[in-house]
């Protein structure tokens, strides 16, 4: 008689934790979709799709708020310990990162509405697409690890961060060249530059999420070896340094 209700409590506690992980997965799926579609809208100049994405961002905002409220209630009522506590704290951190990813995607979509490309429609957009593919692959891999809890795979995803930085530098150079060639390219290229930066930031958020997952699973921090390959800060400072 006395055992039954206690089991009931644990199972609903489990349900609450499960709610968090599921909500994060749903947020991840939405964020991945938003960024992907935002870049598609940019490449195809599809303003309709872009507007759709901007309104979709609401889901991520609401989901993050729901996760925040739920975690606070869990901490207050259950006083989670050890791995449960890490799971709850990790959920807060990951939800915040995913919400930011959504914001960055939304910003790309907004620029897709503004931009009028009278430029050669293939070349600079191809670089942006490649950059987005790298960043989204990293985000996908990280979220897959969140599902499988197989943290050994996280080291591969960190290497990808270097590729993203290198690709960003290359896109940066390319856009700079277009702007120098023809002043009419300056407006669209500036927008594209911001888009590229946004996408590069998504890679950084994926790295943050990877760190949070590593902490949830192991209780330790990922060793801080993060070489920077983004040398775009050094480009163009001296004439001829392109």
């Amino acid at each position: 008689m006395t055992i039954m209700p206690s089991h009931h409590i644990v199972s609903s506690y489990d349900d609450e934790l499960k709610y968090l992980t599921r909500k994060i997965a749903a947020m991840g799926g939405h964020a991945e979709r938003m960024v992907d579609q935002a870049v598609t809208a940019m490449v195809h100049g599809d303003a309709e799709l872009a507007r759709q994405i901007v309104s979709d961002d609401l889901f991520l905002d609401e989901a993050q708020r729901a996760i925040d409220e739920r975690t606070i209630s869990i901490i207050a009522r259950r006083q989670p310990l050890a791995s449960d506590l890490r799971e709850v704290i990790g959920a807060i951190r990951i939800a915040a990162d995913l919400e930011r990813v959504g914001d960055l995607g939304k910003n790309v979509a907004k620029r897709a509405i503004t931009i009028r490309h009278g430029m050669d429609p293939t070349s600079p957009f191809r670089g942006l697409r490649a950059l987005a593919d790298l960043a989204l692959t990293q985000l996908k891999e990280v979220l897959d690890v969140y599902a499988s809890r197989n943290v050994e795979r996280l080291s591969e995803t960190r290497d990808r961060d270097e590729q993203i930085d290198a690709m960003f530098t290359s896109v940066f150079r390319e856009l700079l060249t277009y702007m120098m060639e023809d002043p009419r390219n300056i407006a669209p290229c500036t927008h594209l530059l911001f888009c590229a930066k946004n996408i590069e930031r998504i890679g950084d958020h994926a790295t943050n999420i990877a760190e949070a997952i590593f902490y949830i699973v192991t209780g330790e921090q990922l060793p801080p070896n993060r070489p920077k390959v983004d040398v775009s800060t050094e480009i163009g400072s001296a004439p001829g340094n392109l």
Partner: peptide
């Protein structure tokens, strides 16, 4: 990729329509 028993499908297939 990896699909061991017990893996949550909701966490693996995150696309909104799959959810």
């Amino acid at each position: 990729g990896e699909m061991r028993p017990g893996l949550s499908l909701l966490l693996k297939f995150r696309a909104p329509e799959m959810q």
